[in-house]
Each structure stands twice: as C-alpha cells, then as structure tokens.
Amino acid sequence: MGFFTDLWESATPWSSAEAEAVSGGTGTDSTPAQGGEAGEGEAADKNASTSDNKDGDDDAEEPEEEEEEEELEDPQEKFQEECKESKQCSGPKHHFDECVERVTGASESEDKKGPSEDCVEEFFHLAHCANECAAPKLWAALK
C-alpha cells in the first residue's frame, strides 16, 4: 500500500518537523510569510506580553487594549464587510438599514403605538448573504 503511505505522509508533514519546533521555542521562522511581519525579537516580546496578559486577566475580554503592536485583522470581518457592501447583498442590506432606521425611529418617538418590532430577520438575511459570499474567500485566506 505504497500509495496510501504516500497520501498519509503528504497530509502529515508535521510528523518530524513539529517535534523540534516545540522544544526549540517559537516556530515563527518556519513560515516565511509570518517571519517577514514579526521578527525574532518582536516574537519573543509578544510571547512575554501575552503570557503576562493571561496571568493578569483571565477573561481576556479586551486584549486589544493591552496590545501595543499593530492590530491583527480578522480576514472574516474584512470579507464580510466587503460582501455586505457588495452589489450581491444590496437587497438585504437595504432592507436591514431601512428596518434599523424604522425601529430606532419608533423606539425614540414618544407614542409607541405599533407592535414592537425587531430587525432579527433582516439581520439574518444580510448575515446569510454576507457569509455565503465570504465563505470561499475566507477559506482561501485561512490556513
């Protein structure tokens, strides 16, 4: 079954490489793309700072506040925002914006006559459209 062992080995290149990477500290230099952004010293700094953060606050609710370095952007948010603005999702976006305007307007006005409304359904349609549009791009961007 040489064919299967080849398949297996091609799918598991970590078997030898990872063991060394773990004992030798960070493996940042193994990926060239990442090595370019964060140098050796910075990586060590980041290690120290994040471990401090973890000790300091368990929740890690706002890690953005403690980070001095440049912010890591989540590709999912980027693609979803792009997709929401795209022509493909203009319909759901239009409905959602309109609903938000109506509902916030109704809640701010004094006399609440109509039934209380929410924009969950419109939000669903917009999120569905944006996710459908962003899913293949996201998977291409993630490792």
Binding site: E18, A21, V22, T26, G27, Q34, P75, Q76
Partner: peptide, 11 residues
C-alpha cells in the same frame, strides 16, 4: 500564540 507562527485571528 500559535507555535507554528500562524496568525491567530478569530476565524
């Protein structure tokens, strides 16, 4: 902090 240097984004 990923040990293989992968950017640890939410997604």
């Amino acid at each position: 902090e990923y040990e293989d240097g992968t950017p640890a984004t939410t997604s």
